[in-house]
Amino acid sequence: MPVIEVTNLHKRYGRTVAVDDVSFDVAAGEIFGVLGPNGAGKTTTVEIVAGLRVPDGGEVSVLGLDPRRDAARLRQSVGVQLQESQLPDRLRVAEALELYASFYRDPADPAQLIEELGLGEKRKTPYDKLSGGQKQRLSIALALVGNPRIAILDELTTGLDPQARRDTWGLVERVRERGVTILLVTHFMEEAERLCDRLAVIDRGRVVALDSPAGLVAAVAPEQRIRFRPSAPLDDRLLGDLPQVTGVSRSGTQVVVTGTGDVLHAVTSVLARNQIIAADLRLEQGTLDDAFVELTGHRLAD
């Protein structure tokens, strides 16, 4: 049962087409990613889902409601973390959360949320004295303080250092464990790969692919390459006869096997049966980056 349904969404600003034709469904409890380069129409898409903009065409349904007509009801159950949305400099962490909690019928406990997001020692710190990562965590906390069923997180980790980025990813996973469906906008491959159950790749206002990260990679770059040094002489035909294997070659003392599907399992089983140990075993797969280039014809500018 999808909690978000977007069908043939279209949005123009003047003569510029921001969103050409975008459709996707988000199932309850999943982390759904919207991935694409800057200016692809990601933010406009989620802003329409959040009810902040009116589409020029297409249908959007969130929890079975229309984001424009039922805006008041949806705001109770959809938490939004916007890109570049700040707070007054002198507002303190606890004050911000208590203020935003007062807007909702059934809010989360601000004190508990502050602890969960690791801001316990910063509760009395004014906004302008927080680090980038702390500001981001506060922003996520504000999106969650209403106990939403859906959280929309836009460019969550842009501008954060790698450590803060990883911490934030851990946080998003914990949010999902609370049963919150997450719509995540990102232009970071690593983030999409790590967090998302499914991804819509958007380029120039259109969905160019929609699948799990592994599915996207497999569909575009299905070949895997296994490298190892056998502990005993090995007859290449033993591996070449496997249905999953497409090629066997040698590179010095290394054996290089290419194949698809569960080729790794098939190869290691054969080796085990023949009591051969595979030293320095490596599996090389296509990455989401490769898949993206294949799908869109260009690289994601970072």
Binding site: L82, S85, Y104
Partner: peptide
């Protein structure tokens, strides 16, 4: 973006 953030809440 303070007004905008507020617009996403009830």
């Amino acid at each position: 973006g303070i007004l905008r953030r507020l617009a996403t809440t009830p």
